[in-house]
Design a protein around this nucleic acid. Structure first.
Length: 117
DNA sequence: CACCTGACAAATT
DNA sequence: TAATTTGCCAGGT
């Protein structure tokens, strides 16, 4: 349908909104699910406004599991606190344990967009 | 109208 | 093995 705005952003919002509690995903995985594995940068840019959109963008971290956008939550501790509140384990580096909480959209959706366009 | 920046990631030299 | 460069989309200057 009319996607003359930013179908890319909309898709990012959809995927981020699907992230289950206690799980986290990376910008690259979202981008890859959208078909643009290299557009991880654009995904981060999309989340730039997602924090105000009510999306669980706190469940999105970079490929290292580091809370790259925690400064966008108003309180840099809000993101970490939120994830810990959901049962996410943090490493000594202050990063999320990707080995336990990595959530793949491609796998969760079954490699198929549920957007039922 | 053209160039630069931005919550990243992967490939190449 | 490490450092550098490119790719991606949108928005701001």
């Amino acid at each position: 349908m009319s996607k003359d705005r930013s179908d890319f952003f909309d898709r990012v919002y959809e995927v981020v909104a699907l992230i289950p509690s206690g799980k986290v995903t990376t910008y690259g995985h979202i981008a890859q699910h959208l078909g643009l594995k290299s557009a991880a940068r654009t995904v981060g840019w999309a989340l730039n406004g997602a924090a105000a959109s009510g999306l669980p963008c706190h469940r999105v971290v970079n490929r290292f599991g580091a809370l790259s956008g925690r400064l966008k939550f108003g309180n840099p501790f809000a993101m970490e606190d939120q994830l810990r509140n959901e049962g996410v384990a943090f490493l000594d580096d202050g990063t999320v344990d990707m080995a336990l909480h990595l959530w793949d959209p491609d796998e969760a959706v079954g490699r198929k967009p549920t957007s039922s366009s």
